[in-house]
């Protein structure tokens, strides 16, 4: 693999928490190279350290061993250079700001001009299909629409990488399936590298190029499953035997759950 092709290099990362004089190993020896433009899922049950790993990549946590390189630089440098955007489990929208102003928030922090902010917000709204809702407030939107605003806000920074922490887990099944298609469409248009945390096997298989299976006690990478399903993927794919076989393969790769 060519070095310049690697978007995120996770190198022997371990994380040990100390609580009540006891050491809890959240992650041990995780190594993973993520290529540019790849859609990678971190899949596992609660307590497997998948969110911890994402937070290490996002510079929200420092690993106790090993290192992460994002495009050759440390997570901190990558954060300051706005190399990645993050979508949280809840939409994390500002109730007193309109949809457009929410998307503009990170751009305000970067001190971009008013015109530039509005222009970028307009493009992002178009991308996530919320142009008509620019001047609505978050409370006026459905859960799925709110999460699309969250995606638009993360993309407004024009990052190369999108980090997503169980973004659809609070949504109902119908909305979630719709957003899967939307996310793949957006990903196809923008060529971002996506690191997607989930505990939903079908979701991971449907979206990803590769599914990284994490097992708990201690949190470790127990398998990487290639998902060689054709793209573009649509809802009907879920009913094919190939899809079902891959879901079974991923399920069987868990250890000690």
């Amino acid at each position: 693999m060519n070095g310049s092709q690697t978007a995120i290099k996770i190198d022997n990362v371990g994380m040990v928490y100390r609580a009540d004089n006891q050491e809890v190993t959240a992650l041990t020896g995780v190594s993973l190279d993520i290529e540019k433009g790849e859609f990678i899922s971190l899949l596992g049950p609660s307590g497997c350290g998948k969110t911890t790993l994402l937070r290490i990549v996002a510079d929200l946590l420092a690993p106790t061993s090993g290192q992460v390189l994002i495009d050759g630089s440390s997570p901190r440098e990558a954060r300051l250079q706005k190399k990645y955007g993050m979508v949280f489990q809840s939409p994390v929208l500002y109730e007193w700001r309109t949809v457009q102003k929410n998307i503009e928030l990170p751009l305000e922090l970067m001190k971009l001009s008013k015109e530039e902010r509005a222009e970028r917000a307009r493009k992002m709204l178009e991308l996530v299909g919320l142009t008509d809702f620019a001047h609505h407030y978050p409370q006026q939107l459905s859960g799925g629409m709110q999460q699309r605003v969250g995606i638009a806000r993360a993309l407004a920074l024009r990052p190369e990488i999108l980090l997503m922490d169980e973004p659809f887990s609070a949504l109902d099944e119908f909305t979630r399936e719709k957003l899967h298609e939307d996310l793949l469409r957006i990903w196809g248009k923008t060529n971002k590298t996506v690191l997607f945390v989930t505990h939903n096997i079908a979701e991971a298989v449907f979206l990803s190029d590769r599914v990284c299976v994490l097992s708990p006690h201690p949190g470790r990478l127990s398998a990487v499953v290639n998902i060689d399903l054709p793209r573009p993927r649509t809802m009907e794919l879920r009913d094919t035997p190939e899809f079902t076989a891959l879901v079974a393969k991923v399920r069987n790769s868990f250890e000690g759950v």
Binding site: A58, R79, L80, K82, Q89, S90, V92, Y94, P106, L109
Partner: peptide, 17 residues
């Protein structure tokens, strides 16, 4: 919420912001 503070941190907001 902690997530809002995380968001501020990820956007490299200064303390004043």
């Amino acid at each position: 919420e902690q997530e809002k503070l995380d968001l501020m941190y990820l956007c490299a907001a200064n303390r004043y912001q």
